Amino acid sequence: MYRLCIFDLDGTLLNTVNALTYTTNVTLAAFGLGPIVPEQTKRMVGDGYRTQMERALKACGDEKLAHYEAALPLYMENFAKYCMKDVKPYEGIEHLLEYLRKKQVKIAVFSNKPHDQAVENIETIFGKNYFDCVRGEQAGTPKKPAPDGALIVCREMGMTPKECLYLGDTNTDMKTGIAAGMDTAGVTWGFRDRAELEALSPKYIVEHPSQVEMIVEKANMPNEDLNERK
């Protein structure tokens, strides 16, 4: 039975690729580099903004990362301004979230995005206190794919990992959910392709949020109902 769904943010709940691309390009331009395009961004994000900027700099010719240290605080300054640019939920996400709330399944966000921007993204789109927990990157907690943050969310919600369904769109997310001992679902509508997700053997691969509703419905069905349907 699933009592908590933990969602990745970028590429799972929200399409943030334009905001991430724009912020990266504004940062790169300060050093005479770039631009990159959204399809490149999709491959660069997911492991925190430091790794994202490392990948972007190298892609634009700064192989020795001469601008890396200067780029990090500049990226964060720019991201504070542009983190909501063109951000919108994926088709079917709002219906899925309302379904989960109606079924009294807790909903949480766990992201490698800096915490303040993760909260801004979620509260701007869905409203304050819509999610039971929102957790971005925080000092002292290893970022994904380490399972620590996911397990902290689980404990804060009073759940065990076996009661959680973890959903994400990258190999980093698959590693995170599996390492946390949670049933893990790879979503194909985000930033990475199906093959990347399948390579990590998550319990589920879903192509639309409505499939998550069916997974939860089946998992939470009383045993007598299951027996009747056999």
Rank of each mutant, 00 (worst) to 15 (best):
residue 85 K to D: 02
residue 8 D to T: 05
residue 164 C to R: 01
residue 67 H to F: 14
residue 11 G to M: 10
residue 48 G to P: 13
residue 186 G to D: 05
residue 52 Q to W: 15
residue 25 N to L: 08
residue 102 K to S: 14
residue 99 Y to R: 11
residue 119 V to M: 10
residue 29 A to R: 13
residue 122 I to K: 03
residue 220 N to C: 15
residue 37 V to I: 12
residue 212 V to S: 06
residue 177 G to Y: 00
residue 35 P to A: 04
residue 39 E to I: 05
residue 111 S to H: 06
residue 227 N to S: 10
residue 19 A to F: 03
residue 209 P to G: 04
residue 205 I to S: 06
residue 156 E to M: 13
residue 161 P to D: 01
residue 154 C to M: 11
residue 8 D to A: 04
residue 28 L to F: 02
residue 40 Q to F: 11
residue 93 I to N: 04
residue 147 P to R: 08
residue 90 Y to V: 01
residue 21 T to N: 12
residue 39 E to H: 11
residue 150 A to S: 13
residue 51 T to D: 10
residue 172 T to Q: 12
residue 100 L to F: 06
residue 136 G to M: 05
residue 216 V to E: 06
residue 199 A to V: 08
residue 105 V to L: 01
residue 141 T to E: 09
residue 77 E to F: 07
residue 74 L to W: 07
residue 136 G to P: 03
residue 101 R to Y: 02
residue 172 T to P: 01
residue 169 D to C: 09
residue 182 M to L: 05
residue 90 Y to F: 15
residue 135 R to K: 04
residue 37 V to C: 01
residue 83 C to D: 09
residue 174 M to I: 12
residue 34 G to A: 03
residue 188 T to G: 05
residue 138 Q to E: 13
residue 51 T to H: 12
residue 23 T to Y: 12
residue 7 F to Y: 10
residue 69 E to M: 13
residue 125 I to P: 04
residue 206 V to F: 03
residue 10 D to G: 11
residue 199 A to H: 09
residue 142 P to R: 12
residue 47 D to K: 15
residue 108 A to K: 01
residue 172 T to L: 07
residue 102 K to H: 13
residue 179 A to T: 05
residue 81 K to Q: 14
residue 167 L to S: 00
residue 124 T to L: 00
residue 14 L to I: 13
residue 147 P to M: 11
residue 230 K to I: 13
residue 144 K to P: 02
residue 78 N to C: 10
residue 178 I to W: 10
residue 61 G to Q: 08
residue 170 T to I: 08
residue 228 E to H: 11
residue 162 K to W: 00
residue 53 M to I: 15
residue 18 N to V: 08
residue 105 V to P: 01
residue 78 N to Y: 15
residue 221 M to G: 03
residue 50 R to F: 08
residue 69 E to L: 14
residue 83 C to Q: 04
residue 91 E to V: 10
residue 11 G to W: 09
residue 86 D to W: 02
residue 23 T to Q: 11
residue 217 E to W: 06
residue 131 F to E: 04
residue 135 R to H: 01
residue 166 Y to C: 00
residue 72 L to G: 04
residue 195 A to R: 14
residue 1 M to H: 11
residue 21 T to I: 11
residue 187 V to L: 06
residue 76 M to A: 08
